[in-house]
Structures are given as structure tokens and as C-alpha cells.
Amino acid sequence: MLTAALSFQPVADWFAGMWDTIADGFTRTFIRHENYKLFIEGFGNTLFIAVAACLLGCVIGVLVAVAKVYNAQTGRLRPLNALLNVYLAVFRGTPILVQLLILYYIVFKSVDNALLVAIIGFGINSGAYVAEVVRAGIMAIDPGQTEAGRSLGLSAGVTMRKIILPQAFKNILPALGNEFIALLKETSVAGFITVVDLTRAGDLIRAQTMDPYFSLFFVAGVYLVLVLGLTWILGRVERRLRRSDRR
């Protein structure tokens, strides 16, 4: 009995040592220097940028998509359409980090609010992607829907808002959700323009603790939980919107 117990001693030691390492890493990463506050600040900024940029992106995206569809149908906005094509090409054709740096160091060089610049940058970038998603969604709606709306005497604007966009929105919700999830993860480069987001909070703590494991895994875990939560919410909203499809 005794010998058997003794032979487990090294294993127990190993676990004890492991536990000490983990506890030590945890303390250094979260407790010492009140680092958890830094994580909370970073988490808040990440969420704030993502949500605000998403709203901005949706507004820009819908406006751009509607203008492009209107032009495609009537040919009345050619100069604006050309301008919008440039916008789409530039913001979808260059990396978000480069756009962000240009915005921060050149375009808004005298704006001393990095958070605001980040929201604008991510919003404009996201708007370009949302615009294409929304445009495809509008084009996928049967033209008969527009004709029915217009034949009832509804204006082009009301027809778009009350008839086309609600249907398009339902169809593109999964794509929009993916766009928002991508946006959330892309905000991790906001640190490059001095914003203390979740990733940068991890950088700062790592630089101080010299322990990469806890801060990296923690940061990754928080993003993952956010994305999974978002996926879940989107799934529910989608199911709810599908109610009118029952057959």
C-alpha cells in the first residue's frame, strides 16, 4: 500500500508544480498591478468600437446600396455611382490596418480622439462590405415586388423602405451577421492607433508580465465567447424573421 502511494508522489509533485505555475501566471496576469481593470477597459473599447462601427457601417452600406440600385434602375445618378464604385474598390481593396493608419496619422491628424477615429475607420470600411451585401440582397428580390408597390402609388422611397428592404434584410441577415463578426475580430488592430482595445490590453499586460500564455489565451477566449454569443443571437433573430415563411 505504502509503496504504491509513494510511487504516485512524483505525479502529485508534478501537478502541484503545475498548479503553482498556473496560479502564479494568473496572479501576474490579472491581479498584480490591477491588470483586470486594463482588461475591462479593453473589453469595453472593443465592444464599443464594434457596435458603433457596425451601426455606422449599416447606415453607410444601406445608403450606398440604395443609391447604386437606384442608379442601375434609372441611370440617374451616374457621377455619384462612379464615386461610390471608387469608394467600394478602395476600401475593400486595401487592408483595414493601412486604412486606419492613414486615417489616424494623415486624414484626421489633428483629431485627438483615437477611439472616434477607430469607429469612423471601421465604420467606413464595414460600410463598403455591407453595401455589397445589401445590394445583392435588394437585387435578389423579385422585381414584381417593386412593381406592386409602385403600382399602388407608393413612392420609390417608401417602396424601398417598407417593401424591398425588409425582405432583403431577412435574406441577408446571415451575411450581415458574418460581416459583424468579422468586424468584431478586425477591431483587434485598433491598438495600432493607440486605442486600448482587448488585444492591446493583452499586449500591455504581456509586456509587463513576460508571461504570454494567460493574456493570449484569455484574450482569445473573450473574442471567442463574444463571437459565439453573437452567432447565437443572430440565429434567434433569424428564426424569428422567418415566421412569415411558414407553409
Partner: peptide
Amino acid sequence: RWKMGMVFQHFNLFPH
């Protein structure tokens, strides 16, 4: 168009 109603071959009801 308020004064001219129209009915289509494929109904074109608003599904939402």
C-alpha cells in the same frame, strides 16, 4: 397611380 389599380399575373403580394 392612386387612381389606377393593377393586378398582376403572379399576384406580387408582399410576403413579409
